[in-house]
């Protein structure tokens, strides 16, 4: 019993084979679009999702070719397991990696285009026309069920290959475990070693052994991507983690103090009630004395 025989339309109002060819043309378009996506998307994550499209389209084609077991296996093993593995690895290593678009080998793209055109010409012209007989169809072979027929072949004629597959799978599992546990190149640092290293760095370069300055907390900004300001109005260098600096745009010292400067300017340019000697006092507030004093202590030690 194949999937298609479950659909009562075939042999009814539609001529035989019509549904199969409609399925073919729809899936062929999706498969080719997905395949092009795999190759030409710049980000690996889009490539992986395009590959999922190809695999699902091929699974539908398998179903229409009287291979219901492989239809299920294609979706479970390929789309389910292999693709998810790909997505995991893309998420682990490749999310922010882009392919460089510059050519490192001269004439590489032209050569690839020629190779591609040659391959497709050979395959389509030579192999594509090799089938001259009408397909026999699998009705007879699938008479006692597709899964039963496959099981008979796998466990009788191809049983040696099946056993070899078992060996292959266990080696792959062992290989993955071996590769996933790299040998440690340096011994793991414990707390004592790290404290010692800090003190040595302090002795050698004067680097402050204590905690790094925390991020700036202002009226308008309080995220950890906000640098603390030193009393002279500059940014405390270690107050934002280097990892955050890579990913987010960090507001500059001017941006951080701009609202304050505006307020000061507005007060200074106001209705003339402020005495001239008050302005320097406000100007001193500009440096956020309460906030940047800890940073000041840290910052001094860094010099």
């Amino acid at each position: 019993m194949t999937l298609l025989t479950l659909i009562p339309l075939e042999g009814g109002i539609f001529p035989p084979g019509l549904l199969t060819s409609i399925t073919f043309w729809i899936c062929a378009v999706f498969a080719i679009a997905g395949a092009l996506g795999v190759v030409f998307f710049q980000k690996p994550i889009y490539s992986a999702l395009s590959l999922a499209l190809v695999m699902v389209s091929l699974a539908v084609l398998y179903a229409s070719l009287n291979a219901p077991f492989l239809f299920a296996v294609q979706i479970i093993v390929y789309t389910g397991a292999v693709l998810m593995l790909f997505l995991f690895v893309v998420m682990l290593v490749g999310v922010d990696t882009h392919d460089s678009v510059t050519e490192t080998l001269k004439g590489h793209r032209i050569a690839v285009t020629v190779a591609g055109l040659g391959t497709i010409a050979l395959l389509v012209l030579a192999v594509g026309n090799a089938v001259t007989t009408e397909p026999v169809g699998l009705e007879e072979a699938n008479a006692s069920g597709n899964v039963q027929g496959l099981a008979e072949l796998v466990f009788q004629r191809y049983v040696i290959a099946f056993e070899a597959t078992a060996a292959l799978l266990i080696s792959a599992a062992v290989a993955a475990m071996v590769l996933a546990h790299p040998t440690r190149l340096k011994p793991k640092l414990d707390q004592t070693a790290m404290a010692e290293r800090r003190m040595q760095a302090y002795a050698a370069s004067g680097r402050h052994p204590g905690a790094l300055p925390n991020s700036g907390v202002f009226a308008r900004h309080n995220s950890i991507a906000t640098p603390a300001l030193l009393p002279d109005g500059t940014v405390a260098p270690d107050s934002v983690s280097a990892i955050i600096e890579e990913r987010v745009s960090i507001p500059s010292a001017e941006e951080l103090s701009a609202p304050h400067a505006e307020a000061v300017a507005a007060i200074a340019g106001g209705p003339g009630e402020i005495d001239a000697d008050q302005i320097p006092a406000v100007e001193r507030g500009h440096d956020h004395p309460g906030l940047s004093n800890p940073a000041e202590k840290e910052g001094d030690d860094h010099e």
């Binding site: 080719i32 395949a35 190759v39 690996p44 497709i120």
Partner: peptide
């Protein structure tokens, strides 16, 4: 054949090991 060729071109032209 078309899918195979697209795969071949991708294999030759891309430089990200994952792709």
């Amino acid at each position: 054949a078309i899918l195979f060729t697209i795969g071949l071109v991708g294999f030759l032209i891309r430089r990200n090991a994952l792709v």
